[in-house]
Design a protein around this nucleic acid. Structure first.
Length: 295
DNA sequence: TCGACTCACACGTTTGAAAAGG
DNA sequence: ACCTTTTCAAACGTGTGAGTCG
């Protein structure tokens, strides 16, 4: 069992992968089944992964572009299977809290982004099978734009509203247990609940930087650590779950999303109708007292 | 004027150290 | 002396709503 906070105290933060490739959003490698490589990931940059994360350079590589997804949210059923690109034969990932994600996706998932960084809810929680129990792997998560549009809430639905902002520096969150053995990762679901999203382009904390009012897709990458220093970096798999697509916002736009978040997120329990912090509930009680001449 | 964003706030959950018990 | 369980306070994670900004 690894104790990541003791071994790798810096690992909770995101690591910048490098500059975005020009035009990365508009193209995609032919065929989802074909694996991709990270050509910028040369050997010297990767040595530190194994010799000590503390000294790891923030610049690793740019990620490949994402295939275009349908522009509308909450209007069509999410595809049932994850889409994967990998060169780790037999390895598969499944989204543990898929039902929750689907519930949000059916409404149109929104994620709050703040200057200080905000956690994702729901978080990406996956279970993995097919790993070599003895080999060591890293789990990574990044978030990439789905399309080249900016969105606006039009009272009832999200609609494209102009061109997207220029792409921000790509960052990747490294799961704090990384690197760990395949046996460790397969023992229990892997949760990325500590990932934080920010809209601060100068964020010093390593959070994933997003534009507000843009549509994003989280991706999970699995890297076989033993092969990190090889000339080619073949042992790698990437997964994305279409139901985890979301629109980043600085304040919730769709009231149904607010309701879902309050209902499902334990940290928001104070805003449920029986919570003492529910202002609407207080106002209701207040007006009720007035209407019944209690005051 | 309006939409997007920031911030302080109250409240609940999580975390981890200290204390208590076996 | 050691381990497990319980307690408790601090830190953290929430959505809210008023205010600010462009």
């Amino acid at each position: 069992m690894y104790h990541p906070r003791e071994l790798y105290p810096s690992l909770g933060a995101g690591y910048r992968l490098g500059p975005a490739q020009p035009g990365a959003d508009s193209s995609f490698p032919p065929g989802l089944a074909e694996g991709y490589r990270y050509p910028d990931l040369d050997t010297p940059k990767l040595d530190c992964f194994l010799s000590g994360m503390e000294a790891a350079p923030r610049t690793l590589a740019a990620h490949p572009p994402l295939p275009l997804l349908p522009p509308a949210m909450g209007t069509e059923p999410a595809p049932s299977a994850p889409e994967a690109l990998h060169s780790l034969p037999g390895v598969s990932l499944s989204l543990e809290n898929r039902e929750l994600w689907k519930e949000f996706s059916s409404v149109g998932t929104e994620m709050i982004i703040t200057k200080a960084g905000r956690r994702m809810f729901p978080a990406c929680r996956v279970s993995v099978t097919g790993l070599d129990p003895e080999a060591r792997y890293l789990f990574l998560l990044d978030v990439v734009p789905v399309d080249g549009a900016r969105y606006r809430w039009q009272g009832r639905r999200w609609e494209p509203s102009g061109k997207a902002e220029p792409r921000l520096p790509d960052r990747v969150y490294i799961h704090p247990d990384s690197p760990a053995t395949g046996a460790h990762w397969m023992r229990q679901p892997v949760s990325f609940h500590r990932v934080k999203l920010t809209n601060s382009t100068l964020d010093p904390h390593g959070h994933l930087i997003l534009h507000s009012m843009h549509k994003y897709q989280p991706r999970i990458h699995l890297v076989r650590a033993a092969q990190l220093c090889s000339q080619h970096w073949g042992g790698m798999a990437s997964f994305r779950f279409p139901e985890t697509t979301f629109i980043s916002v600085t304040a919730y736009q769709n009231p149904r999303i607010t309701q879902l978040k309050i209902a499902a997120n334990p940290f928001a329990k104070g805003f449920r109708e029986n919570g003492r912090n529910c202002k609407r509930w207080e106002l209701f009680i207040h007006s009720f007292m007035h209407s019944t001449n209690v005051y």
